[in-house]
Amino acid sequence: MRKIFFTLVAMTLLSFNASADESKEAAIRAALSSLNSQVPIVAVADAQFPGLYEVTLASGEKLYVNESGSHFIVGEVYKVQADGRLVNLTEEGKKAGRIEQLASIAPEDMIIFPAKGETKAHMTVFTDTDCFYCRKLHKEMAQINAQGIEVRYLAFPRAGAGSKTQKVMDSIWCADKADQAELFTQAKSGRTIPALSCDNSPVMSQYELGQKMGVTGTPALVLQDGTLVPGYMPAAQLAKMLGVTN
């Protein structure tokens, strides 16, 4: 939590959303800015429980602040349902933002493996060409597609800029669109692919988007309702989670 806090106070202040009462929002802004003038607030809104406001930061993280801005909480907030189940309100609040962020990505910047027959569901996968479980998931692509699930791949080279994986992924995304899926599958199989580079590669911008959305490892699955599921999941289990099978 301390690491998150120091990350927050190191970034750049952005604009506000006037969804909270203006005077209270101004107080929150002033208090957080006095703590550090570069706290990157994107929006302030009423929290889903009384007494606090939800502050969304440019990183996608959320703070929960009192109306004067004198106290705030960094972390996840849960609600206990009447049946005893716990609902992660922080995660629920991030889903709509993820859907909006993914909708801004042009299909031609994704590597898409379409469903066989009727498309019943889709998911977006942040992936690395080298990770074991990324390769394991891709080996099941035929099964996943056969269930009516479309898979949309985005790049997430875990080692970051300048890494071998980033260069491999640049080679895939810079290739002719008609060749990308085959090159992607070859790379996932451990085969060497022709080295390519281009000025408009979306690989690192997709990596940065994944970080903002809370991706910390690969594969990371974003379901069509905005739920972020970290890690590998077998095809049959994916189909159940997406509501394609019982």
Rank of each mutant, 00 (worst) to 15 (best):
Q224E: 15
D130M: 08
V151W: 07
K167T: 06
R98S: 04
G97I: 01
A31L: 02
S197K: 14
E76D: 15
D83N: 14
I105W: 09
P157Q: 08
E118P: 02
S19G: 03
S23D: 11
V55P: 10
G217I: 04
Q48H: 08
G210C: 07
C174P: 11
V65A: 04
E108V: 10
S104Y: 00
I193W: 12
L223P: 15
G160T: 05
N66W: 04
G160A: 08
S171P: 10
A27R: 15
I111S: 10
Q180R: 15
G60F: 09
T245D: 12
V77A: 01
G93H: 05
I99Q: 13
A239H: 09
V55E: 05
A146V: 06
N200C: 00
P230W: 04
V244H: 08
I99K: 14
S15M: 06
K95F: 10
G69M: 05
L183I: 00
Y207L: 07
T124C: 01
K3M: 09
S189W: 05
F126M: 07
G217H: 05
G214M: 03
Q101S: 14
A181E: 06
P234G: 06
T216F: 07
K62Q: 12
L32M: 08
V65D: 07
F132L: 08
E92A: 09
N145P: 09
Q101P: 00
A178R: 15
Y78E: 11
K79C: 02
A178Q: 14
Q143Y: 01
V77T: 08
S205T: 12
L223Q: 14
E67M: 00
M141Q: 14
C134Y: 03
S197L: 02
A175C: 04
L154I: 06
C198Y: 06
P234F: 06
L209T: 09
Q143L: 05
C174H: 12
